[in-house]
Write a protein that binds this DNA or RNA. Structure first.
Length: 307
DNA sequence: CTTGGGTCCTGTGCGC
DNA sequence: TGCGCACAGGACCCAA
């Protein structure tokens, strides 16, 4: 579920709690997530200061003061919960008996909620980190598709999981010519091609559906046979879809009125994903959103708008 | 090289 | 009410 916009929202939500902070205590509650964690992982994080919080594709990259970066992937269900003085004392949010808890969640795209501050670990709390300001960051991941690693910051681009990633879709290297070149000669469907992180990094099932709908391209189109003009439109719609989702995520992160955590992952913003049987979002169309299965994954699309 | 299918993992929601 | 099963999906892995 967490795709690029959700990970970016989590990164922004973590910044107040972690930027410049020292990790004074790290509790690792199991040896692995999707893969084995590095040797002496908790020990190597303990005492380090977080110098910056970055992101590449769906990876969070926390640069530490020893030249290493703490890499975090949320997988399917990974979430980071911040409790305690995450907003720093200056903002004076610690007024009540309850601690403000920002639930920077993968599955729900970064929402906020109030929760009792508690020292009892939850069922799938796999890592608990305490900062020098007393904030607690808990990594929770029920399905355990998430991952973490430690890697030299100056060599991140050679990390096995980063080295072959395509361009950042919101960066300068992602433009119509580049996407056209990457798609040229491809026999697979455009849906599968956009899910391929080597072609463009950070898209998942939801935003691929959304971007293809907005670009008016049928998900089963052969990737290598899409015209230059339509690739230009697709490039722009990928950017716009992701940028809008990041803005929506930011607003949910700030909105403490939505404290119950049931915002439901920007669902208001989805035009086709999860909307099988609903009217097409374009009033002039009058078509019905359909669902089909492509390589085992659901694809939502409008058969009238997407050709 | 590309492509497609299988796999992991567990909570949720549905039908019977 | 309870049980079993399909489904969710990011990304690796392997076979063709």
């Amino acid at each position: 579920m967490p795709e690029l916009p959700e990970v970016e929202t989590v990164r922004r939500g973590l910044e107040p709690a972690l930027f410049g902070r020292r990790l004074v205590h790290v509790e690792q509650r199991r040896p692995d997530l999707r893969w084995k964690l590095p040797e002496r992982f908790a020990e190597r994080l303990t005492g380090r200061r977080v110098e910056s919080l970055g992101r590449r594709s769906k990876w969070l990259l926390l640069a530490l003061d020893d030249g290493m970066s703490w890499m975090i992937h949320l997988g399917m269900s990974g979430r980071l919960l911040i409790s305690g003085s995450c907003q720093s004392e200056a903002e004076g949010l610690e007024s009540g008996r309850q601690a403000a808890m920002v639930r920077a969640s993968g599955g729900q795209g970064g929402d906020c909620e109030l929760a009792q501050a508690t020292s009892m670990p939850g069922k799938h709390d796999h890592l608990v980190v305490t900062t020098d300001l007393g904030a607690t960051i808990t990594y929770n991941d029920a399905r355990r598709f998430g991952a973490m690693d430690l890697w030299p910051t100056d060599a991140l681009s050679s990390h096995p999981h980063l080295a072959r990633l395509g361009p950042e879709p919101l960066g300068n290297a992602f433009h119509a010519n580049a996407l056209g070149a990457a798609l040229a000669g491809r026999k697979s469907t455009i849906k599968a091609a956009l899910l391929d992180q080597r072609i463009v990094a950070g898209l998942g099932n939801i935003y691929v559906c959304e971007a293809l709908y907005r670009a008016g391209i049928h998900p089963a189109q052969q990737a290598g046979r899409i015209s230059e003009r339509r690739i230009e439109v697709l490039t722009a719609e990928i950017r716009a879809t992701l940028a809008e989702a990041i803005v929506a995520g930011g607003s949910t992160l700030r909105d403490y009125r939505h404290a119950d955590g049931d915002l439901g992952y920007f669902q208001h913003a989805f035009r086709v994903y999860g909307r099988e049987g609903a009217r097409c979002a374009r009033p002039v169309c009058g078509g019905t959103v359909r669902r089909m299965t492509q390589s085992g994954r659901s694809t939502f699309y409008c058969p009238r708008c997407q050709r």
